[in-house]
Design a protein around this nucleic acid. Structure first.
Lengths: 175, 175
DNA sequence: GGATTCATGTAAGAGGTTACATGATTAT
DNA sequence: ATAATCATGTAACCTCTTACATGAATCC
């Protein structure tokens, strides 16, 4: 099963605790994810359409008297499955940790799901092997610039691991 | 003067030491930047066209007997100015450090330009103030998730600063 | 004889952004 | 009065990617 862009999963996550209409999802992101993750209206409505087409969401129109009608979206079982599969897997690329892995932790807590510690642990293992791989490359690197690049990468990964084992661990352990 | 995407500057950088044709730039990237930075052929030729349109490059066709003709590109004074301006400025976003700032250091060394230590120093200052700003936010953060995000950012910035002051400093100081 | 190198591109599409459009309602 | 909120979208654009196209020359 192919992994989709993280934004799609974020939308699924917003709906996992109950159906919402587009504007409500926007508010959810704004209020809860804040500066961590921004979703524009144009992207939001486009993605909702796409996800419904894929059968991960279904929608129904809710007519209101004094306000414009809303299209309320809810997760299908296919969508729920896709989300959970994403949620409980460690993130494969360091560059995605900043948004993708943080989002996973957010939803873990928000939805009060168990498995947070396991996720943190498996993410740490993934990073450990990445670090080992880079250390190995560093050992054989010839060019100074290449060494410099590898040093930066290694230091970065190490700082993520440290953060996982202290801050993230505490976050998912706390009630 | 507006900052352009880093890839454009990378092309300028490849030409700062002398004119090259497209394929040669590709080889330069492949051989020297390697896994650090990838440029696809489609992007390359499109960017070269754009940069020439902007007056940062000029080109002339070099006919060969046994091989297809080449279009040889060289920097205009406008292009050289734009590149130098980019090169000697610290990078404003942490997410760009991974490619953009590393590229700056690469070109510094490759072109044997002076000012490397100053660049490393000013980059470190930029990061220091970023770190301070995040520490300040961290102080007043209410939500646990927000604190977690800020902790990750702070740890990351700190690891970059540490790397700058040890590895990058040594890199630009070495002959 | 077949793969790789040389050399330049086009086409299609993914993911994302900013700006614009609409129109009523509620808060200041 | 005017600004913000509610609610949904479209249009245009940007960066970048993968796949495809071409055709001779040289390496193994």
């Amino acid at each position: 099963m192919k992994t989709r862009p993280a934004t799609e999963y974020a939308l699924l996550g917003a709906l996992r605790s109950g159906s919402k209409h587009g504007y409500e999802i926007l508010q959810f992101f704004e209020a809860r994810l804040g500066s961590t993750w921004y979703v524009s209206t144009s992207q939001l409505y486009a993605l909702l359409k796409r996800l419904e087409g894929r059968g991960w969401l279904r929608s129904s129109v809710e007519v209101q008297e004094t306000r414009p009608s809303r299209r309320v979206f809810s997760l299908t079982s296919k969508g729920k499955k896709a989300f959970d599969q994403w949620l409980f897997s460690p993130t494969e690329h360091v560059r995605d940790l900043r948004v993708e892995f943080l989002a996973k932790l957010f939803f873990m807590k928000d939805l009060r799901l168990r498995g947070g510690r396991e996720l943190v642990q498996s993410q740490a293992s993934v990073l450990e092997s990445m670090k080992d791989a880079q250390l190995e490359r560093r050992k054989w690197a010839k060019e100074e610039f290449q060494k410099l690049v590898l040093d930066a990468r290694i230091a970065n990964i190490a700082s993520w691991i440290e953060w996982l084992e202290t801050k993230a661990e505490a976050f998912v352990s706390g009630e």
